[in-house]
Design a protein around this nucleic acid. Sequence first.
DNA 1: CTGAGATCCTGTCTGC
DNA 2: TGCAGACAGGATCTCA
Length: 269
Amino acid sequence: MPELPEVETTVRAISGFENSILEKIVIHNRSLRWEVDKDLEKLTANKRIYKISRRAKYIIIKLDVYSLMLHLGMSGKLRIQNKKDNYFKKHDHVEFVFKDKKIIFNDVRRFGSLHITKNINDHPLISNLGIEPLSRSFNKDYLHALTLDSKLNIKKLLMDQKKVVGVGNIYASESLFLASINPLRPAKKISLSECDDIIKAIKKVLKQAIKMGGTTLKDFYSADGSEGYFKLELNVYGLEDKPCKKCKRKIKRIVLGQRSTFFCENCQV
DNA sequence: CTGAGATCCTGTCTGC
DNA sequence: TGCAGACAGGATCTCA
């Protein structure tokens, strides 16, 4: 489900819990993408939260010695709830309990994960990640070097988290539309100036999506319960057979690497 | 090393 | 209405 803007939106929604004391973590179902560490509850009881941040699509919660890494997978979301409202929803797996409130991790499909580790950057799921798309070092030269080295088509390359993080299926399609690049193009054949177009498009799309609270297609809600309104800005994603906003021809849907991919054959070369 | 395809899981929607 | 099949915001793993 969530790509960088949705994760960022979620992080911002729970940032108010920084400096709060996490009384305890209650786990109802350890069987997520990976089995949750048996010692996690013990290691996190009555710890202050120093920092809540994002790396790639991971939510990082820094305690004293340990940090938590939470990935929302395809269907995960957080929900802030008053502690006294003691209700549960189906697929509530983890509760982060504070003095008056709790944050609940709900994940229908259980592709999400929760890890505890001392040093985030040494964790194997983090250490091999590519660079942040909104950082300065994500620029045309960086991307061009990657493309020259790759046999993938450009869309698959952009979604490869080892190369650049945070771009998922929606924003890959949307960025390539803005950059007027066909998603099927072999990465190798993308010129430096086209790389520049792609970089600018990705940054623009991600920033705008964050501003609008992410994209709610059907069931993404931020932790405060609000929807993301970037859906209204989508140009191609989920719009098969609808008229292209530039040329009015029909948007095409194809499958690349088992993922739906939307683009305009006329505008994207 | 790279890249393609299968796979994890539950729910919803479409078409017969 | 039932039922099969496709599809869903991700990313790891297995194998060539």
